[in-house]
């Protein structure tokens, strides 16, 4: 697809210490036909921002690390400032395949959907068993706390219409952000769809285990609960 004449489609990528792969990610997104790319370097200690800027994309940086949720929100805000009609969020570590962007935005372009959620669990081939279990627990908790059942509440590969990007208002700075988006879909009755996406569990992305540690899961759960009672 990649037809950006009718709609301005922006790809928003939060990144933290991804200097090794960020240029490849940008190349892949371009190869998939998308030119409007916004990278938010979330206070990396390496040269993620410089590497992204060298590729001629919009590369902005948080002065301090604020978490994936905060960086994604900044990336979405930047896309809105650049007059985006559709915003696709994806991870900066190369685990998402940009070839899936076409499928992700298609329901928004042709069927009037507001949010399209990329789901790893619709076709979990190649996904480590423990990640499947983690995700299912996350889905159950998201459903229990926020009232909407989705097959992958923790996926960062999503597409939003301009309207959805305007109304969705999250407070979560870290991994609870993804679940909060589900809550907003439920609260604002946004028309959403889930589509199957491919995830590449490379040695590099699996090496960044801090992102998926059990302790992070517990912190995420605590933050989700805290926001409900505070």
């Amino acid at each position: 697809m990649g037809d950006e004449n009718a709609k301005k489609i922006f790809i928003a990528i939060p990144a933290f210490n991804e200097e090794k792969v960020i240029q490849d990610v940008i190349k892949e997104v371009r190869a998939a036909g998308y030119r409007n790319i916004v990278i938010v370097d979330d206070g990396s200690s390496d040269n993620t921002q410089q590497k992204a800027a060298e590729m001629g994309v919009v590369a902005i940086k948080h002065k301090i690390n604020r978490g994936k949720g905060a960086a994604t929100k900044t990336a979405i805000e930047a896309c809105k400032l650049l007059d985006a009609d559709i915003i696709v969020t994806m991870d900066g570590d190369g685990q998402h395949d940009p070839k899936d962007i076409d499928n992700l935005i298609s329901p928004i372009l042709t069927e009037g959907y507001e949010v399209v959620l990329g789901s790893r669990l619709k076709n979990p081939q190649g996904m480590p068993g423990y990640k499947i279990i983690q995700n299912k627990i996350g889905n159950m908790l998201t459903w229990f706390l926020f009232g909407l059942w989705v097959t992958d509440s923790q996926s960062g590969f999503r597409a939003y219409s301009r309207h959805a990007a305007e109304v969705i208002n999250t407070r979560g700075d870290r991994y609870e952000y993804d679940s909060e988006v589900i809550r907003e879909i439920y609260v604002y009755k946004l028309k959403y769809e889930e589509i199957s996406i491919k995830v590449r569990y490379t040695e590099y992305s699996m090496g960044k285990l801090h992102k998926q540690s059990l302790m992070n899961g517990i912190i995420t759960l605590y933050k989700m609960l805290w926001r409900l009672i505070s």
């Binding site: 938010v40 206070g43 919009v58 902005i60 940086k61 948080h62 002065k63 301090i64 604020r66 905060a70 929100k73 900044t74 805000e77 930047a78 400032l81 650049l82």
Partner: peptide
């Protein structure tokens, strides 16, 4: 942090 990073845009 967000406002600061988006200042230029």
């Amino acid at each position: 942090t967000r406002d600061d990073s988006l200042k230029e845009l």
